[in-house]
């Protein structure tokens, strides 16, 4: 475990806690895409199938449980919590994410480390994570303004993936035969998706104006 990966996991955890805090404190989920949260819950459920079969470390196991539990908690809140669900922008969150799920699954069947259930679902979760933010970015574009907590949420999420890429570069140079092509390429695509958001976030921070995404 190197510092980049640990920092990546921490920023990932922070992004989820920011979201939980925002929903719990304001009892509102305005501006949050339920579809993105459902995709993330699916990412964790399909990636951590080995939760009970392969023990890597206590840290890994605890973090996997935290990620699964928190993502399901967010989805449950947005769907079931009487107060929160009222503030969900159903007619703005219209990204047809089922096609994305299907495309990722087909890709995972074709491109995987080994053609086993666990590896196919692992590759599926890697591809899905790369595009899971799309409904959220579309929702931000639609709603025009980005309230600061949602903006920070996306910022930490992008930082997590960016740190993971540095972690893979570090491991590539320090460990022999370390290759994670599937995760690396997919992680690069994912970070690229955030790049435009980062650009507008930086502009709004620099010009000290409210973050506006071009419609």
């Amino acid at each position: 475990m190197n510092i980049f990966r640990f920092a990546g996991d921490m920023t990932h955890l922070i992004s989820i806690l920011i979201l939980l805090l925002k929903i719990y404190a304001t009892k509102s989920c305005a501006g949050i895409s339920l579809k993105t949260q459902e995709l993330y819950a699916l990412v964790f459920l399909t990636r951590y199938l080995d939760l009970f079969t392969d023990y890597v470390s206590l840290y890994n196991t605890v973090m996997k449980i935290v990620f699964i539990a928190s993502s399901l908690a967010i989805v449950w809140c947005m769907r079931r919590h009487p107060l929160v669900r009222r503030s969900y922008d159903k007619d703005l969150d219209t990204f047809r994410h089922q096609y994305v799920v299907l495309a990722c699954f087909v890709l995972a069947l074709l491109l995987n480390e080994k053609f086993t259930i666990q590896e196919v679902f692992w590759a599926f979760s890697i591809y899905l994570e790369a595009v899971a933010i799309l409904p959220q970015l579309v929702l931000l574009q639609r709603s025009g303004n980005v309230d600061n907590l949602t903006g920070q949420y996306v910022l930490f999420l992008g930082a997590y993936r960016g740190l993971y890429i540095i972690n893979w570069i570090y491991r590539y140079f320090t460990e022999d035969h370390f290759t994670r092509w599937i995760a690396c390429v997919s992680g690069l695509v994912q970070t690229g998706l955030y790049a435009d958001f980062f650009y507008y976030y930086y502009l709004s921070w620099k010009t000290n104006t409210k973050l506006k995404l071009p419609a």
Binding site: D54, V56, S57, N60
Partner: peptide, 10 residues
């Protein structure tokens, strides 16, 4: 037996 490839990252 070869060490089954573990995904040691999250």
């Amino acid at each position: 037996p070869i060490q089954q490839r573990l995904h040691d990252e999250l």
